[in-house]
Design a protein around this nucleic acid. Structure first.
Lengths: 245, 245
DNA sequence: CGATATCTTGAGGAATCTCAATACTAGTGG
DNA sequence: CCACTAGTATTGAGATTCCTCAAGATATCG
């Protein structure tokens, strides 16, 4: 990561200062969408921005869930661990994604920055109070949770029933779609996570991920570019493989 | 399917009559929890009860999502299909569980009764209107969705990283827990679904499910009882295996 | 009581994993 | 600017879990 990519949301020394949500480029994607200027101001009052370096942990499974986060730049992974170290990544967060909701006041998973990332940080209690006040925001959050639930079901189908090749193609397609939704080019897909992360997301090993990339490269479905980019050479075939057709 | 199993919506001539939500035993578990008498009445106004026989489909993936359901008795499975017939069951619904929320106005999965089941049926539009009016209900629904999201993440860990034995033990433990939450005995666990359903829920084949049950029986962790019941002989060991310890 | 579906068991095979070596990449210090 | 080091990715060979195919046993339902 080049040193100049410090990201947006700079301004301010201590990393804890009022933020101009009005200038936030990914707001339409997130929980703050559709808030009025006044409401945004109220939100900004309880929020701090915070930067995390690649590999840094936001919180760990079992920690008291006192803080909610909203990603504004970078990539964050969520994972669960088994006692013997087996790991399942349950999701990658991109700008606009929200994290930290919990059922029993402790986090159910660990969150760790994949790349340098900027996040908005909300104390849970203050956030809850604000949600009471702004039903619009409550509904938006609910709608985001519904989306996540649908995505989780897709991921179950992937984990339970797809082959390695289908998994990788589904993964690349997902990244492509998510990039597009964020206004980026959908085709050379940026894949900032390591083979190990991909493996732990897809229920595979790094070796199988690597071999499958090679296979897809040989089959001229993709080609690997500089800078963690993957060019999808044959999008139709990629999709067909992903869906098991 | 036997010919007499046509009937849903009996009771009352038109199948659409006031339902005594006040008498509903599983209300505390569901979205109707914590509603006042007046609110319950309003809810009852828009609801119909409907019976489904084992094997009957509530709705199919892709159908317009016009109806929401709440299970009051029986078991319902949700699943997604791949073009070649591979199937992933994403959840089993028990009394108190809610189903039908959708992202894009079509159902993202098929819902089918595993056993004879009773459900409350809500037209989505009327339900949404009611949710506007009763923020308490909105919050309750959000909290249920959060719970489901956490469960979905557990299921991803299971599907992606657990062995067949661990999967079966996790499954039995889950059923046991859910029965307990509903006020039933947690130990002889009722397992109303077929081996094929269990397989499609855990990302296995029926043969592997069967063999694993036999293994656990031989290891004296469980024993199979009459009437689709499984006695957990050694709960501690079951849990240890389930968690991969 | 017979028919049909479901479940169990067996034998062999395939996808993926494990272990191990090599290649690559990026950052570090000379 | 280049060698060096540490981490990451790729490739290979063999092992293992789970799947596939097939037969037999059991349960269910009319």
């Amino acid at each position: 990561m080049p040193p100049h990519e410090t990201g947006r949301l700079r301004d301010g020394a201590a990393g804890a200062e009022m933020h101009p949500c009005g200038a936030c480029t990914i707001r339409p994607l997130t929980v703050c969408a559709a808030l009025e200027a006044e409401e945004l101001r109220r939100l900004a009052d309880i929020l701090q921005t915070q930067r995390f370096e690649a590999g840094q942990t936001l919180f760990s499974e079992g920690d008291p869930a006192d803080i909610l986060y909203n990603v504004t730049s970078g990539t964050v992974k969520l994972y669960k661990l088994m006692p013997d170290g087996r790991r399942q990544i349950t999701g990658f967060l991109l700008p606009g994604d929200f994290v930290g909701l919990s059922v029993d006041d402790t986090y159910a998973y660990t969150a760790e920055a994949v790349t340098q990332s900027m996040l908005c940080r909300f104390p849970r209690r203050k956030m809850e109070a604000l949600l009471e006040e702004f039903p619009k925001m409550q509904r938006r959050l609910f709608s985001m949770a519904s989306n996540e639930l649908a995505a989780a079901q897709d991921q179950m189908l992937l984990l339970g029933r797809k082959t390695a090749k289908e998994k990788i193609c589904s993964f690349l397609h997902l990244l492509s779609q998510r990039a597009a939704r964020r206004g980026h080019k959908e085709n050379p897909v940026h894949v900032p996570m390591s083979r190990a992360d991909i493996a732990d997301y897809l229920g595979l090993t790094t070796e199988t991920v690597s071999r499958t990339f090679t296979q897809l490269k040989t089959a001229r479905v993709i080609s690997l570019l500089e800078g963690n980019k993957v060019q999808i050479t044959d999008m139709d075939q990629l999709l067909d493989i992903a869906e098991g057709a």
